[in-house]
Nucleic acid binder design. Structure first.
Lengths: 334, 334
DNA sequence: CTGAAAGCGCTTACAG
DNA sequence: CTGAAAGCGCTTACAG
């Protein structure tokens, strides 16, 4: 059994109140007692029990993080940023994989509540009404990352997807492309789906390029769906010179299909992705894409959350800065 | 304030002992009381406080997981498996990123102890003496995954790296290759470095192929290091027809350099990787590699841990089954 | 400067 | 079937 405060009190011949005081760096003991207590603690290898402390303070110094899929490179980049900030501020993070399943999400929320986490970051998923209801009941701070919401009191940090998509498309246009296809994310997804397609359409319009439905195919952000969407696009024999994919994985799917079909990138087809996950630079040719600062976003979301926990004030939303990373999948048309 | 057991007891006109009993499905109350209590719980939206419960039971139903780098696709695949098993058995998992930093690892261990986790899985990192010492002091079950150790009482689950490397090399040999280069992982790494190189050497020897030092270059498992190692190998003008890389990322580095140099894969050079992380199939051409069942390994490690927590018995080590995934980077020599 | 005591939200003998 | 009480390991007024 690990020693408790009672054990060290007994051994040091003081009361547990005194041990507690030196433990918490409060005032009210002689330097002599302090030394004695400290020595005893050292000797016994005593470590305070945060569970007991948490029961009194109503603070556990742990936060919960919900991901639709912990193992995606997207999620794990966010997690890295979150964990880093939390660690530096003495918080622990418990992760939950929601599998994008409503029931499971609700269960996770319940568990986090029972475990008395101090706050929750909800990552890259839509904050549904039913989730919000329980969050409201739990009464603890929540922040969204790579997602957004209108619910009051729930700040978010994300990139401006519409603008980023606009710029990606415009980048292609500036390179001389006019026949630009797009592979959108999950159709109807209000966070990462719709806005990116809208940004693409607006860029086309603003540059006097007619936007045609048939130039758009949809995937679900994943690699396989990018492959199918590209096949689909090819089948329509549209003669496009560039494609903008709403995720790197889908863009890499495009690269893959292109290679299989003998379409040379970027000579015959230019490709730009979205996210800048790690594999974007590993692929051949290295993928030009729009960077989302996932790590900082995670870290920033965690910062907001801890701030809310500690001050009780609601944080502001943040728009993270994206930028285009030029690599080798886009060429200028002459 | 969330309602406590006291609140529901008062409202239901029973003692807290009775509420506790129905909460825990014990015996000793009439069906009428049960209904009344249940109804009150429902009405008040009461949820038990696991912190308080944990203080008594000395069980938190949470486990800690240490990773050298949470955001690697390798770690996140393990994490996914761990979280899944934990979730299904009503455990939560708190993640810690050690950054492969001794001080930080020790700090994480201390935090996990203070937070009274029921067990720890230590992932893909060497269990140093100093870590083992504190683990021993904490007195809670530990299991290693994708790592190994001789410390008594610390079971591990991993692939047999030596055999897997042997088979990867032999696969190349069976395809007619004789001049086979290797890119090893971190030099001297006793877990994923040395054994794979040894497996490679043994396969060569067993097939009567002389093994020469200069055919081996070393990286650190990462993409960039794979690129440099490949450049290094090329500089030695060895005229090899195949390369075995000790990680997929390094193998992809090889692909990348080959593409840049106009060396066609697999026509002029065959490549086989190790891990079978997600990007292995996204790359062009899709990478032939040896599969490590990361998800199952994580899940299995978690199973062992929970078993140790609940039975108090030490689990056995497990060797996870690897296999070669044939894709398109190896060709048969005629 | 120091300690006895109440209390955090629960569980669990013990007594009835 | 039910409740009063002790206790888990701490913190924090309160009294001295």
């Amino acid at each position: 059994m690990n020693p408790t405060i009672k054990d060290v009190a007994k051994k040091a011949n003081v009361s547990i109140a005194t041990v507690s005081r030196v433990l918490n760096n409060l005032t009210g003991y002689s330097d002599k007692t302090k030394q004695k207590v400290l020595r005893t603690i050292e000797e016994m290898g005593y470590q305070p029990n945060m569970i007991a402390r948490g029961l009194i303070n109503k603070r556990t110094r742990t936060i919960g993080v919900l991901f639709p899929n912990v193992s995606s490179s997207f999620s794990s980049a966010l997690l890295h940023g979150i964990e880093e900030f939390a660690y530096n501020h003495n918080y622990s993070v418990v992760v939950c994989n929601t599998d994008e399943d409503g029931k499971r999400t609700l269960k996770c929320l319940q568990v986090l509540r029972e475990k008395q986490v101090d706050g929750i970051v909800f990552a890259s998923e839509l904050l549904k009404d039913e989730y919000y209801k329980v969050l409201e009941a739990i009464q603890i701070p929540v922040v969204l990352v790579s997602s957004e919401t209108n619910y009051p009191g729930v700040p978010y940090v994300k990139v401006d997807d519409r603008v980023a998509a606009y710029e990606a498309t415009e980048y292609l246009i500036h390179k001389g492309h006019k026949r630009i296809a797009m592979i959108g994310g999950t159709k109807g997804d209000p966070i990462a789906g719709v806005p990116r397609v809208e940004g693409y359409m607006k860029a086309l319009k603003d540059h006097g390029i007619p936007c045609m439905e048939e130039y758009i195919a949809y995937g679900d952000f994943g690699f396989a769906s990018g492959c199918s969407a590209m096949e689909e696009l090819l089948k329509r024999s549209l003669d496009f010179t560039a494609v903008f994919a709403a995720s790197d994985e889908m863009a890499i799917g495009v690269l893959s299909v292109a290679a299989r079909r003998g379409i040379r990138v970027p000579d015959e087809l230019s490709v730009i992705g979205y996210d800048n996950v790690e594999l974007a630079e590993m692929v051949v040719p290295p993928l030009t894409t729009v960077n989302q600062p996932l790590n900082e976003m995670g870290s920033n979301a965690c910062e907001k959350l801890i701030d809310m926990i500690e001050t009780g004030k609601i944080s502001q939303n943040s728009i993270a800065q994206h930028h285009i990373v030029e690599r080798q999948t886009v060429r200028a048309l002459d």
